[in-house]
Every structure is written in structure tokens, then in C-alpha cells.
């Protein structure tokens, strides 16, 4: 499986570094005119029995003889069937030296109900040609939860296709049970690995003290890692087995560190300084009265006018 990083770091590191480093690299290799020894590693990820991904990790030897991730190498992916190769897609490696493709949904299988994928580096300016193949059998991993289950038992079922095309269970495959968290999968318990039985089933009891969301909902995950026959497989299911998270009653309380001040503080400041400013107003009113005050002569004069 693959994760996607669309972020500034990526944009900068990938966008700029690839551009810059490839230019520099081209210049330096043009002088050397010797291609770098290159290796490819392939892994297969199958998720929810729908999405199938191939990840190719490309490493190339540097001048000191160390294998480092090859950046911006073009990897061609082929579907191999009875020595006939069908071109699927090409992908460029990222800064970690990884190139990914998503396989088509209806991948034609060979007689052994397997598929073979070849990844090749061909005629690259920098990297030597390299080939790697992988062959995996088609299988289905499923996680079954009983509705309204209080026993918290998750049953993972692994099935594949038999010789005659019938669906058969797979025995003795290690299945790991996780809980999905924000940034990764957390092992559900200390001992979180179970092998499938003769029915291809592994039943795992989830512990009680796992935090869920505000409705107690969490995602449970069953996974097979690096199986010889099937590669990596993963299946997720949603259930309300989690501890209910109590919502914060007031995420933004009136507090000293929050935008809104505690009322006692506002009242204290308002009373203290309001009082002072009220006194100022009295003074300003007195000044106004001083300004409006008539002189003795004026009063006399007005009295005469009135008479």
C-alpha cells in the first residue's frame, strides 16, 4: 500500500530537489558516461480486496559503492503471462526511490490463479537496466464482525482459489489485528497475531479499553504482512467497540489564555477604570460650566435688557 504526501515539504523536496538534482546528476553522469548499478525490489499491497498496488523500490550504487534510493528513475511495469509481457504503466521514483502503480481491477490470472508483474528499468540515461518480478496468488481477506456484538470478536477469513477454480480457505497464515488511529495502525493488544485455522479463520477478541470517537466508533484492521503467497493484504471494518470520548463541554472557555476574558477580570477592570473615567466626565462637565459661565457685567447687562 502506498501513502500520498501532497504537502509543502513534498513539493519543495520533490519538486525542487528532483529538478535540481536531476540536472546536476545529468551533468555529472555525462562526464562519467557510466551508468549506475541499479536494483529493484517489488512489493504487492491488496486492500479491502479492491485496490491492488505494486510498489517498486529502486536503489542505485553511488560512487562509494553504497546503494541509495534512486530518484526520478523511470520504471516500466509489465504483466507477465506465459512469457508474454503486456505493458501496464510507467512510473517515476520519488525521493525515497519508490515508484507505484495501481493494478487494473480485472487482472487476468494464469493457470495457477496467480499473476506475475515485472518491473524494468530500460534505457535510462543514468541507471543501468534492471528487472525484477513478483508472483502472487489471488486471495481474499475479509474481516467479519457480528452486528451488535458485545463480545468484541473480530473474525478474519482468508480464502483463495483452488485448483479447480473453487474457493478454498487458507490455513496457517499469520493475521495481525490492529486498531486504526489517526496516523497509523495500533496493535490491538500485546499479543495481536493469530494464525488462520483449517477454515481460513482467525478470531480475535478486541480489548475493552480502546478509545473510540465521540460515538465510541473505531476502525479495526486485519492485516497480512509479506506473505510468500499473497503479499500484503489488509481489511478494515468499522464498529462501536471503542470507549466513548466525552466531548469537551466548552472547547473555548473564558480563560486568561483564551480570546475571551474571565468575567471577574472584565468587571474589575471596567469598574476601576470606568470609575476613573466617570470622574473625568464630571471634571469635563465642570470645565464646560466654567466655559459657559457669564461674567458679572454680562448678567447685569442682561438684567437691564430684560427690564
Amino acid at each position: 500500500m502506498k501513502s500520498i504526501i501532497i504537502n509543502r515539504y513534498f513539493l519543495k523536496k520533490l519538486g525542487f530537489t528532483i529538478a535540481v538534482s536531476s540536472i546536476l546528476f545529468n551533468i555529472s553522469t555525462a562526464q562519467i558516461t557510466e551508468k549506475r548499478t541499479t536494483t529493484i525490489q517489488l512489493s504487492f499491497y491488496k486492500k479491502a480486496n479492491i485496490s491492488k498496488t505494486i510498489v517498486g523500490t529502486v536503489k542505485a550504487k553511488n560512487e562509494e559503492g553504497k546503494f541509495l534510493p534512486a530518484i526520478n528513475a523511470k520504471v516500466n511495469f509489465y504483466l507477465v503471462n506465459n512469457n508474454a509481457q503486456t505493458f501496464l504503466k510507467a512510473a517515476y521514483t520519488n525521493k525515497a526511490g519508490k515508484a507505484n502503480i495501481i493494478l487494473p481491477e480485472n487482472l487476468p490470472l494464469d493457470t495457477g490463479h496467480c499473476f506475475t508483474i515485472a518491473a524494468k528499468i530500460e534505457n535510462d540515461k543514468v541507471f543501468e537496466d534492471a528487472v525484477e518480478e513478483l508472483r502472487y496468488k489471488e486471495a481474499n481477506l475479509e474481516l467479519k464482525l457480528a452486528p451488535y456484538d458485545t463480545s468484541r470478536i473480530a473474525k478474519a477469513v482468508l480464502k483463495t482459489i483452488g485448483k479447480n477454480g473453487e474457493v478454498i480457505p487458507v490455513q496457517d497464515v499469520e493475521i495481525k489485528f490492529y486498531v486504526k488511529r489517526l496516523f497509523g495502525f495500533m496493535p490491538a493488544a500485546e499479543d495481536y497475531t493469530l494464525a488462520t485455522d483449517e477454515n481460513g479463520e482467525a478470531s480475535f477478541t478486541y480489548p475493552k479499553d480502546i478509545m473510540g470517537d465521540t460515538a465510541g466508533i473505531l476502525t479495526v484492521v486485519a492485516r497480512i504482512d509479506d506473505n510468500e503467497l499473497f503479499g500484503n493484504m489488509e481489511y478494515q471494518a468499522v464498529t462501536a467497540w471503542g470507549t466513548v470520548l466525552l466531548k469537551e463541554k466548552e472547547p473555548f472557555p473564558r480563560a486568561l489564555w483564551e480570546p475571551y476574558a474571565p468575567l471577574p477580570l472584565i468587571i474589575t477592570i471596567a469598574v476601576l477604570f470606568g470609575g476613573v473615567w466617570f470622574t473625568y466626565l464630571i471634571i469635563f462637565y465642570s470645565l464646560y460650566k466654567i466655559k459657559k459661565e457669564k461674567s458679572d457685567e454680562q448678567i447685569e447687562f442682561e438684567a437691564i435688557i430684560k427690564q
Binding site: M1, A91, Y92, N94
Partner: peptide, 15 residues
């Protein structure tokens, strides 16, 4: 799980 994404994938996802 923590693989980065290659360039073409990024463009595709973007679009």
C-alpha cells in the same frame, strides 16, 4: 505505509 508518492501519481491525484 509511509511511501511517498511519485510525480505522476501526484499529478493524477491532483487532477
Amino acid at each position: 505505509m509511509n511511501d511517498d508518492l511519485n510525480k505522476s501519481r501526484r499529478n493524477f491525484i491532483k487532477k
